[in-house]
Amino acid sequence: MSTEQHLSNEKSLAIIHQMINQAKNNISDSGLSWLLWGVALFLTSVSTYIFIDIGSDNIFLGWNIFGIVTILLLSYEIFRPKKKSVRTYLDDILRLVDIGFIVCLFIIIFSINYSVGPNNGFGFMLMIFAFLMLVKGGAIKSKALIVGAVVNWAAAIAVIVNTEFRYDMLIMAAAVLIGYIIPGLLLRAQHKRNSIK
């Protein structure tokens, strides 16, 4: 881009328009976090179903391991080097949404162990997953995440209505597959395509 050449009014407006669009199109998601969380939640839900089915003494073993995985994943999210060369106003808002989501999630986990019980508690968990999917999906214009949000809200109601806990785990696994893993794979593929360009 040259510097001091004659600038017509139309050209000035075109530059402003083009640059603002360039900045807007810079919002993206590598999909890695969705995949990591999705796989961890999916395996935990399926393992819980299997533990119940085989009559294991410790049906929550998967969730205990998931607790440790959560700490590792959160540490990774916090300490991994951020390569972004630009910080948008949206980045700051989404960071606050992430913090709010984690706080709500820990309160739900606390309530499952304290008073609410797993049957309804996992429904509330799916409800807050859906909220995150909707906000992030809207921000990065991912239809897969928005569809995931709708599916997770429906799954949340199904989990609350259903009284047999092992089926809650199957519903949760399906919701996580549609809400986390599939959008994660799509975002990852899109991110790789954009990186090659």
């Binding site: 640059m19 603002i20 900045a23 807007k24 810079n26 630009v86 910080r87 106003y89 700051d92």
Partner: peptide
């Protein structure tokens, strides 16, 4: 124009 749309 770029910087008007981002924080930094």
């Amino acid at each position: 124009s770029l910087l008007i749309s981002v924080r930094e």
